[in-house]
Amino acid sequence: MPIRTNRGRAAVYRKLWGWPLRSPRHLAVAAFVVALLLTGAGIVIPKVVGKNGGQVAAGGSSTAATTTARPGQRPDAGPGGNNLPTSSLPNRLTSTPRPTSTVPPAPDALNTVRDWAQRWVDHPEGLSAQEWLERLRPFTTREYMAIMASIEPANIRSTRLTGDIRAITSFEKSVEVEVPTDGGGIRVIAIRTDDGWRVANYEQVEGR
């Protein structure tokens, strides 16, 4: 018959808890059963926990894989990746080739070179180097005058111009002009300064 009262249940519990204490044999049997239960729990529980943990880990990695952004996709894009690909900009700007001539040569620049060249080839015997330099000064930069001071006019073979001057390259603030002379051609560079166009350099043209 089922036990219907709390007093009856308590009596049954006292019998169960007191059974191992009735004799050493009962105590040994109870200890063996408890040890057997603990051993079984120690084997079963790790397997169950490990299996469930592996499933959770796998599920976590799968979720991470689906939320990882692909190239050209924003990190918040879904698995469909419907976002438009992002465009990649160049790492540096590409420079365009410098043109050989950007503007027509300024008339003042050509006039300055012509006047300078006419005085450069004009060095008659008896003209001192200082007098020759003073005639070039109004058409020459101050910096280049210091270099021109080392030139001995008697060593210049050219004595006259033999043709029209010709602009080779022309920019807003500089121009390179070829000047034909009886001692060979020269190339003269003039630059625009605060005082106007001035000759800043010249060199002999090889083979002319």
Rank of each mutant, 00 (worst) to 15 (best):
R74P: 11
P75R: 05
A77F: 07
G78K: 10
G78Y: 08
P79F: 13
P79L: 11
G80E: 14
G81P: 06
G81M: 08
G81S: 10
G81Y: 06
N83G: 11
T86L: 11
T86N: 09
S87I: 14
S88H: 15
S88P: 12
S88Q: 15
R92F: 14
T94F: 11
S95C: 14
T96W: 11
T96A: 14
T96K: 13
P97V: 10
R98W: 15
P99K: 02
T100N: 15
T102M: 06
V103Q: 04
V103S: 04
P105I: 08
P105K: 07
P105D: 07
P105R: 03
A106H: 11
P107S: 05
P107I: 06
D108E: 14
A109F: 03
L110W: 04
L110D: 03
L110N: 05
T112R: 02
T112F: 02
V113C: 08
V113M: 10
D115Q: 13
W116E: 01
A117K: 01
Q118K: 06
V121K: 04
H123N: 01
P124Q: 09
S128Q: 04
S128Y: 04
S128N: 05
S128R: 05
E131T: 12
E131N: 11
E131Y: 12
W132E: 01
W132P: 02
R137F: 06
P138N: 05
P138Y: 05
P138K: 02
F139D: 03
T140M: 00
T140A: 01
T140D: 03
T141V: 00
R142G: 13
E143L: 10
M145Y: 08
M145S: 06
A146E: 14
I147P: 04
M148W: 07
M148A: 07
M148Y: 04
M148T: 05
S150F: 13
I151W: 10
I151V: 11
E152S: 06
A154D: 12
N155M: 13
I156E: 05
R157Y: 08
R157P: 12
R157E: 13
T159L: 02
L161I: 03
T162E: 07
G163P: 04
D164I: 12
D164Q: 15
I165K: 07
T169L: 09
S170K: 08
S170R: 06
F171A: 12
F171N: 10
K173F: 13
K173M: 13
S174K: 10
E176A: 15
V177Y: 02
V179W: 00
V179I: 00
V179P: 00
P180Q: 04
G183I: 00
G184E: 01
G185S: 08
I186M: 00
R187Q: 11
V188S: 01
A190I: 00
R192M: 04
T193P: 03
D194V: 10
D194P: 08
D195F: 12
G196C: 00
W197R: 01
R198T: 00
